[in-house]
Amino acid sequence: MLCDICKKREATIHIKEVKNGKCVSTNLCTECAKEKELAGGLGAFGFNLAEVIFNVGKMSEADKKADASEDKNNKEVREKESSLICPECGWNLAKMRRSGGKLGCSRCYTVFAKWVSMAVEQVQRSSVHVGKRPEKCGRSANAVKLEMDKLQLELASAVSAEEYERAAQLRDRINALKAEAAALQDATGEK
């Protein structure tokens, strides 16, 4: 049996896990298992990013069988994807898969946006950052709106719980965000 990751070396490690009620087995060669362990551990986390990438790999494997009936367009897309390469650092999908979903540089986030968003969807709570930001960088209108929505909900629950002091604080923060959003709108409108 060949290794699920590199599909070259003989698989020596066989892992069985129960996922969504189904038994899933993964077969790895020693080298890839080592790499996978470094990339986040075998089952040390509740999820493993590498698996997100594996599934992508398996999907295309299954699709290969249906290759005959596949229209030419789809095939071209796939070929194009497998030859995708980051012009900045030379990263490609094979490297991404082998490293357990890692990227080579900031530019990779754009080049492999499709796979990044798949990974983000599996692992993260949403796809927009709302925390700390560099002093020099303003926030995107989207992030401001997202935080505003969240605070509105908190405000509603604070009011219904009659926590007026907290509600007042929330209202102030919402007003500040409104001003920020308006400023952002102006800035983009002027362009």
């Binding site: 979903g101 990974a119 983000v120 692992v123 950052h129 930001r133 560099p134 960088c137 926030r139 995107s140």
Partner: peptide
């Protein structure tokens, strides 16, 4: 390294 939507960019998207 920073992106307006994704925040601080890291080697691993996790």
């Amino acid at each position: 390294a920073w992106d307006d939507e994704l925040g601080y960019l890291t080697e691993c998207p996790t």
